[in-house]
Amino acid sequence: MSKIQDVPLEETQDSSFVASVKTVYNRHRIGINFCLSVVLALLTWEFIDFVFDDPDFFTGPVAVALEFGVLIYEPRFWENINYSGTELIYGFGLAMILGVVIGAAVAFSRTLDEMFSPILVGLYATPRSVAAPLFIIWLGLGIASKVGVITLASVFPVIINTQAGIKNVQGEFRMLGRAFNISFWAMLTKIIVPGSLPFLIAGLRLGYSRSVVTIMVAELFGAEAGIGYMIDHATQTFHVAEMMVGISLLTIMGIAGNEILKGVERWATPYRKTLV
């Protein structure tokens, strides 16, 4: 909340070097602060590691990077990534399909909306990860139970956002379409889908970030392989560096998927600014 008084007016009276540094800083303020912030974070992290000096309990960024360099030569590591990646693709893919279909159904049919929306909203608020142990009994320790839990966890934001998106398409556009007597198919592809796409993608992004978290939860309660399994196993054997590699991998998966979906949104809906 910068007030007018905060703007420095007597800057020019400084020595020329300080002044030029300040000019550069002010011009690239956001970028420089970003870099400073990241460097500071890494230094703090490394410093805490230096103070604790106990690799069983804490590891700094250097140790994590070194551990990563060691792990990439182990086939087991790639198996874990493969396993979790498969879970993510199947689980999130199913959630996408189911979410869009159910969301469209409750958006188009008033009866279905009145019947199931209260239940859907209720389920949206419940912690679905508590169903993970149930899925292990129903679907076994293999990949199927994880896919089930991930689907369950990420399907609700997709449903709710699809429904909101379709309902949000302005009435005047629909009326315009009806006035020109366009076919149902044209109405769908030219008006409803483009109009609801920003919401739909926002829902997919929410669902995706939940999927990544759920990989961890689902694999924690019993798994054969996977990144979450690797994290849990590494912690139990006091390999904190390996654990940190696992957490970083999940973080990278989250950020990468989110950026891809953002890119899809920019490409598919150039007519609208990004919804947060």
């Binding site: 303020r29 970003f34 912030s37 974070a41 912690t235 006091f238 904190v240 696992g246 999940l250 950020i255």
Partner: peptide
């Protein structure tokens, strides 16, 4: 401006994954 990257990192990190570490500590 300073902590925005931290917030993004915290947002992207599944906090449940930190649970085993918390137990160790």
């Amino acid at each position: 401006e300073f902590f925005d990257p931290w917030l993004s990192a915290i947002y992207a990190t599944p906090s449940v994954a930190l649970a085993p570490l918390i137990i160790i500590w």
